[in-house]
Design a protein around this nucleic acid. Structure first.
Length: 262
DNA sequence: CGGGCCTCCTGGTAGC
DNA sequence: TGCTACCAGGAGGCCC
């Protein structure tokens, strides 16, 4: 569920609550979420540090500390989220890792299904290239033309390409459905069946809808009525034509679309 | 290379 | 009422 717009919201939340505060303690409730670092080492390295800034790339959040080569990487998986509580006794039920900050205020990384990960890294840019992640879907250099170009090199389903983090980082199942819906395309459409103008439209739409999603998430706004995201359910009516939405499996995911608008 | 399926995980729910 | 089966879905692995 957490895709680019959600993670942008988490970043804003993180910056608001966690930056420039001494980390008094680190509580690790679900150690399986830690990757490549032992719980004791993770806690030891972060204790008495401060988070100084953060970066988002696709669905990843990176938090820098005072120590130059120490960043915390947060991936939210499908059910991860951040939450703040005023005391250590009010942690959310799903809390996996809790940073105890000044005045005992806590920032918790919580996750019901524990499919995400938290780890320590030295250099975000290096991490991204080593992991083979594509450009962030909203970075300035990634124009609609560039997106059309990148996609046109693919041969499979457009939805697979949109969700592939190695091509463009940030889009998951729900937002790929939104992009397809706003373009009037079927979830199983193949990239090869689209002409250049259609691919350009995909590029423009991707940027536009994600931007709107980010604004909604970071400023507590809701999505426009005409977004699929508001109605993403089989029995719901299409916000464009009022007919019933349908679902189909595409790229291994349940995809919602409007059979009448295509 | 691409697609489909399985796995990780847990809680909610549909069906019996 | 209580059990089981299945689903959600990000990501990686495996096989065809």
């Amino acid at each position: 569920m957490p895709e680019l717009p959600d993670v942008a919201g988490f970043k804003a939340f993180f910056d608001r609550h966690a930056l420039q505060q001494l980390i008094l303690d680190v509580l690790i409730h679900k150690s399986r979420i830690l990757q490549g670092v032992a719980p004791r080492e993770f806690a030891g390295r972060l204790k008495n540090q401060e988070f100084t800034s953060s970066l988002r790339h696709g669905k990843l959040l990176f938090a820098a500390t005072q120590e130059k080569r120490l960043w915390v990487l947060i991936h939210f998986g499908m059910s991860g989220y951040l939450s703040v509580c005023e005391t250590v006794h009010q942690q959310p039920k799903d809390a996996a890792i809790v940073f105890v900050l000044e005045e005992k205020k806590c920032l918790a990384y919580a996750s019901q299904r524990l499919l995400g990960k938290v780890s320590c890294i030295k250099d975000p840019q290096k991490y991204l290239s080593e992991e083979g992640l594509g450009p962030d879907a909203l970075e300035r250099e990634l124009t609609a033309e560039r997106i059309a170009e990148i996609l046109s090199e693919r041969r499979g389903m457009l939805k697979s390409a949109l969700m592939n983090q190695g091509i463009i980082a940030g889009v998951g199942n729900e937002w790929s459905d939104e992009i397809l819906f706003q373009c009037g395309l079927h979830p199983r459409v193949k990239v090869g069946d689209l002409n250049r103008e259609q691919l350009l439209n995909v590029g423009r739409t991707l940027r536009r809808v994600l931007q709107i999603g980010v604004e909604a998430n970071c400023q507590g706004r809701s999505l426009p009525h005409r977004f699929l995201g508001r109605h993403r359910h089989e029995d719901n009516a299409c916000p464009h034509c009022n007919n019933n939405l349908a679902s189909v499996k595409a790229a291994g995911r349940t995809s919602y679309y409007c059979p009448h608008c295509i």
